[in-house]
Design a protein around this nucleic acid. Sequence first.
DNA 1: AGACCATACCTCGATGCCGAGGTATAACAA
DNA 2: TTGTTATACCTCGGCATCGAGGTATGGTCT
Lengths: 177, 177
Amino acid sequence: MLKLAILGFLHDRPLHGYELRRHLAGLAGHVRPISDGTLYPAIKRLETDGLLVRTAEPGAAAAPRHTLRLTDAGRSALLERLRTPDELDVSDENRWFTVLAFLRHLDGEPAAQAAVLRRRLAFLSEPASFFYDGDRPMGAEDVADPFRRGMLLIARATTTAELDWLRATLAELDRAV
Amino acid sequence: MLKLAILGFLHDRPLHGYELRRHLAGLAGHVRPISDGTLYPAIKRLETDGLLVRTAEPGAAAAPRHTLRLTDAGRSALLERLRTPDELDVSDENRWFTVLAFLRHLDGEPAAQAAVLRRRLAFLSEPASFFYDGDRPMGAEDVADPFRRGMLLIARATTTAELDWLRATLAELDRAV
DNA sequence: AGACCATACCTCGATGCCGAGGTATAACAA
DNA sequence: TTGTTATACCTCGGCATCGAGGTATGGTCT
């Protein structure tokens, strides 16, 4: 998820680590802040894999910065990841939102974008709950506990809103194909 | 989060590992399945910490089961965790939902339940976005990219639904105090 | 000149989690 | 009888992440 986000932000323009940190903090930091000790090793991994290059720029504002730039390999790794997200990218909301944040990078491929949205649509269309009566998913009406009922109400509102948006956006994308 | 969920389920009644696994799969498995290799070490940790005890019950259905039972220490650890969830429990939706799933275990303490809900209310009331124009959070109207606009629309729908539910439930709890 | 802060990067140990593997029992079908 | 499936538990290597720590530079205030 962090890897995807780093590649996604760098696709727009080269950044140095500190800037990247602030972008990441905006995207997910409100919910789950990422720490230095996570970011810098992740950058190093991406560099080792040849997905980005670092160039030192001595004394711009304070300490020497390392500008991070996506390589061609990095660019295609990003696009490939966006075209074929794994199951967790589709089901876990935090990961899914990371995919959504950068899906526009597939801008020449409306059919590929639509395919990704359709996977999310399929996932959200499966009957699911947090609690089960045997095999039957329980709805908010079946639950007496007010807190669990809240969970189900909130989840339903989210799903409804997302399905509406998915269907509208898919219709638009299909017109563009 | 796993720890909290295990303690929460065992508070209702003793379970063996396999049953626990199915309960956990219901609660979060749709979104993010937990694996054997995560569950059993977690159980062992809780046993080492004295929060639960295991008693072998030979050959109930198939292989010998280990029934898991909460100790008094386990029970109070659960209640304490529910009374004072950490910041991540409040901000991260997956963790927050785990708290909600078991908040009823604080059933004699409506004021404590209300205090927890109020922390979530405060979190949701902070102005936040995924994208920023300088320091100003950007709304769906400010974003041209349809995918990023979707993120903001969905997030707004969720927040609205949750705020409605929070306020209604807090009003009820306050009447009970 | 000295103190202090924001910027910028990095390391390291501990932890939690995953996935792939393994073992064993009982029920049921071919 | 043999194979298969469901139940039930466990181990181990590897990896991502966290948090607490550290280093260094340049600008600002006094």
